[in-house]
């Protein structure tokens, strides 16, 4: 798979600010970064209030996604370039949604806000006015989404990739180290899941590593390329980043993101949990 069909560089992005049919979308959990400055012309999507269902624990359904994109002024044939903070975690999550709902032309900005910032590229506080569209989404593509029963069925038979930090994997931490640690769920990982922290797929400046580096990373960690793969983390956004690396960059055909991730699995009654640094037995 060609990188050009899924990623754009910061140089490409800067040259295409204001281009016809190109819409930059900043996606974050905390949108104060956008408010303080964003890529000129970019619209914002708030991961928490606009991409999650306000009542059920699930993300927006087809009708909600259509209403959101229509409101943002995004058309079905626009080339959507997603970027954000946190090394593009939430942008990668949004990319996965766009793919789930069948958007044809979507790219991730390599390096996201971080590279843009470190490069000293231009920001604006101006919020663009885009006329509303009548966006029509496709039915959800179930082939890239895993549910808890898929994860249980994959133990010991398919690739399970835990992309959290090593301490979260082993059960020594319950959450990433920039968050308080008090959580209700049990610590640990899904038995037989290998540990490949999302961060190993990224360079320090937030860009993705080369295809050669990525392939070596996952093969060395024990991925079997002949088997389907499910990636998970704590809430599904870091694993979207790894889903992007495996499915979009390396072109592995059967890769699903388990968006329920550890906050769901670690709260289930009666499921197996492994502690420590080793994958454990099925």
């Amino acid at each position: 798979m060609s990188r050009d069909s899924v990623l754009v560089t910061a140089d490409w992005a800067e040259k295409n600010i204001g281009a016809d049919n190109v819409v930059f979308v900043e996606v974050d959990e905390d949108t104060t970064a956008y408010d303080g400055g964003h890529i000129p012309g970019a619209v914002k999507i708030d991961w928490k209030t606009e991409l999650q269902d306000p009542v059920r624990r699930d993300f927006v359904n087809k009708q909600q996604f259509e209403a959101l994109l229509s409101r943002k002024g995004i058309a079905g044939d626009d080339l959507v370039v997603l970027y954000g903070g946190n090394n593009n975690w939430f942008a990668a999550y949004a990319y996965w949604y766009f793919k789930l709902y069948g958007h044809e032309q979507v790219r991730l900005l390599d390096g996201g806000r971080k590279k843009w910032e470190l490069d000293g590229r231009p920001y604006t506080k101006d919020v663009p006015a885009r006329p509303a569209t009548n966006y029509v989404a496709k039915e959800q593509d179930g082939s890239i989404r895993a549910f808890r029963d898929d994860v249980l069925a994959a133990i010991g038979s398919h690739n399970l990739v835990d992309v959290r930090s090593p301490d979260e994997y082993a059960g020594r931490l319950n959450a990433p180290a920039h968050l308080p640690q008090e959580q209700s769920q049990r610590p640990g990982h899904v038995p037989t899941a290998i540990s490949v922290p999302w961060s190993k797929a990224a360079n320090e400046d937030g860009t993705f590593k080369s295809d050669e580096e990525l392939r070596k990373l996952y093969l060395d960690a024990g991925i079997d390329e002949s088997k389907p793969t499910i990636a998970y983390c704590r809430i599904g956004e870091r694993s979207s980043h790894t889903w992007f690396a495996l499915h979009e960059l390396l072109g592995y055909s059967d890769v699903r993101n388990y968006d329920g991730s550890w906050t769901e699995y670690g709260s289930l009654v009666g499921v197996p949990v492994a502690l420590g640094d080793e994958p454990g037995e099925a």
Binding site: W47, N86, A175, H178, P180, E182, C233
Partner: peptide, 25 residues
Amino acid sequence: MSIDGCGAPEQGAPLPASVDVAKET
């Protein structure tokens, strides 16, 4: 402060009341 998401909270804000500094590092 959110512990629902994984994004980094605002830096420099006071520690949330729910954080027990006797337990946290």
